[in-house]
Design a protein around this nucleic acid. Structure first.
Lengths: 131, 131
DNA sequence: CAGTTAAATAACCGACAGGTTAAATATAGG
DNA sequence: CCTATATTTAACCTGTCGGTTATTTAACTG
C-alpha cells in the first residue's frame, strides 16, 4: 500500500528498524554505526534504511563517504493520532466511566457522537433469532 | 517476526484492517457486516480477521452460524507507548525547550538521561576528518 | 595513480502477504 | 434429510520482504 499511514506502520513492524530509530533518537549517525549492533550484512541494513526513508522516518545527508542518517519523526505523529483514537478501549477507567455516563445519560438517536457508543452484537437479526 | 509489537504494527499496516478496527470500535459485529464496505471476497476479509486475531486485536465469539468479532485494543497500548517515546521529536515546542534547557544545564557525562540528548553527527571521526 | 573505506546496487533466494475461486464446514429451519 | 446462510479452509497466483553474496560507485589517502 502507498498511503503514508500504512507505510509508517509497515516500517515500524520490524524490530531491526525500530532499533535503528531508537539509535537515531540518540543522534545522527552513519550506516556502519547503525549496522554494528546487528548480526546482519550491510546491504540488509541498507534496505531497512531505504524502507525507513521511503516512509519518511529518516533522511540522509552526505559527508564525504558517509551518509549520516537522522531521525525524521513527523510521520509518527499521525500514527500516534490514529492509535490514540482507541485509547478509551484500553483505558479501563475511562471505559467504565463511559458506561456509567451511558447509563446516566442514555445516548439518543439524534446524537451522532453518542450513537457511536452502541453496545451489543449489532448484527442483523435477519431470520429467526431463536435465542 | 513473532514479537507482539511487530505483530501489532504489521496488523495496522493495512488500510482494510484499520477500517475493520474502526468499524469494531462502534460495536461487535459479524464477518459479513465487516466485509460489506470492501470490494473484496469473503475469504480475503477472513484472512484479515485472522491477522487481527493473531495480533490479539480482535476476538471472536460464536452465535449460531455467526462469528461476531469484537475489538480487543490491549496491544494498541504498547504500540502507543512505543511511539510516544518519540513525541519530543515531532513536538517542536518541546524540542526547542529541550535545546534551551540543554544550553542552560549542559548534559554531563555522569547523567545517563542527559547524555542521551547528544546533538551533531555522532559518528566516529576515525581517520582524517578533513573538514 | 593505486589502495582503502563507506555505502549502494544487482542478482538471487525462500517465505510470506494479499488476493482469487472452489470446496468444505457449521448451524438453523422446514 | 435437505436447503439456505455464514464462515472457514484449500489450492493457487503474484508481488513484496528480509536476507544473502558479489559487484559497483563514491570519496578520501598516501
Amino acid at each position: 500500500m502507498h498511503d503514508p499511514l500504512s507505510s509508517t506502520f509497515a516500517a515500524l513492524a520490524d524490530p531491526t528498524r525500530r532499533a535503528i530509530l531508537a539509535r537515531l533518537a540518540m543522534g545522527e549517525t552513519s550506516v556502519t554505526e547503525l549496522a554494528r549492533p546487528f548480526e546482519m550484512s550491510m546491504p540488509a541494513v541498507s534496505k531497512h534504511l531505504k524502507v525507513l526513508e521511503r516512509a519518511g522516518l529518516i533522511s540522509r545527508g552526505r559527508e564525504a563517504q558517509w551518509r549520516p542518517c537522522r531521525l525524521d519523526a513527523g510521520p509518527l505523529k499521525d500514527a500516534a493520532s490514529w492509535i490514540e483514537e482507541y485509547r478509551r478501549f484500553w483505558a479501563p477507567y475511562v471505559d467504565a466511566l463511559e458506561r456509567h455516563l451511558d447509563r446516566m445519560f442514555p445516548p439518543t438517536p439524534r446524537s451522532k457522537k453518542a450513537s457511536k457508543r452502541q453496545r451489543g452484537p449489532n448484527r442483523q437479526p435477519k431470520k429467526g433469532e431463536t435465542k
